[in-house]
Amino acid sequence: MKKIWFFIAFTAVLFSCSDNNRSNNNPNIPNYTISAYLDYNLPTYNNLRYVSNPVFVANYGAKGIIVMKTGEGTYNAFDAACPNQTVNSCTAMTIDGIYAVCSCDKSKYNLYTGLGEKEYPMKQYRVEVSGTVVHVYN
Rank of each mutant, 00 (worst) to 15 (best):
P54K: 10
C17T: 13
F78N: 00
Y120D: 12
V87H: 02
I8M: 05
R126L: 07
I95M: 08
K3W: 06
K123H: 11
Y137A: 10
L14E: 03
Y37K: 15
Y60L: 05
R126N: 15
K63N: 06
N24C: 11
T132I: 06
N88G: 11
P27L: 02
E72K: 01
S130L: 04
Y37D: 14
V87P: 09
Y137P: 07
P54R: 09
C90Y: 02
I65H: 04
M122F: 04
Y75Q: 04
K69S: 05
L42D: 12
P30V: 05
I8D: 01
P30E: 09
H135A: 13
G131Y: 13
K108V: 04
K106P: 03
E117V: 14
P27R: 06
A80F: 06
N46Q: 11
N53Y: 07
E128D: 12
Q124S: 15
T91K: 11
N110I: 05
S89D: 14
P43G: 10
A36E: 03
F78C: 08
A80L: 07
V101D: 09
S35F: 12
S52R: 06
P121F: 06
E117H: 02
N84S: 09
G114D: 01
V67R: 12
V101P: 05
A92F: 03
L38K: 09
E117N: 12
I98N: 11
E128L: 04
P30G: 11
A80N: 10
R126F: 13
A100H: 03
V51R: 12
N47C: 00
E72V: 09
R126A: 13
Y60E: 11
L115F: 15
I4H: 10
T70K: 14
V101T: 12
A81F: 03
F6M: 13
N26A: 05
Y50G: 01
E128T: 13
I95F: 01
T94V: 15
F10Q: 07
N20Q: 08
F10A: 15
S107M: 00
I66D: 03
K63L: 00
D19V: 03
V51P: 07
S89R: 05
C17G: 15
T74F: 14
D96P: 05
A92E: 11
T11S: 15
W5P: 00
Y45W: 10
S35V: 08
E119W: 11
F15D: 01
M68T: 08
S18P: 02
T94M: 08
L38M: 04
L42T: 07
N88S: 14
K106H: 15
I8C: 00
G64F: 01
P83M: 03
K3P: 00
V87C: 12
I8N: 00
M68S: 04
Y60A: 10
T44I: 05
M93D: 13
D96F: 07
M68Q: 11
Y32W: 04
Y60V: 08
N138D: 15
I65V: 15
C17Q: 14
M68D: 01
N21A: 10
K108Q: 14
M93N: 13
G73M: 02
N59V: 03
I34C: 05
N20V: 02
S103E: 15
H135L: 07
E72W: 00
S130H: 04
N84W: 10
K69W: 03
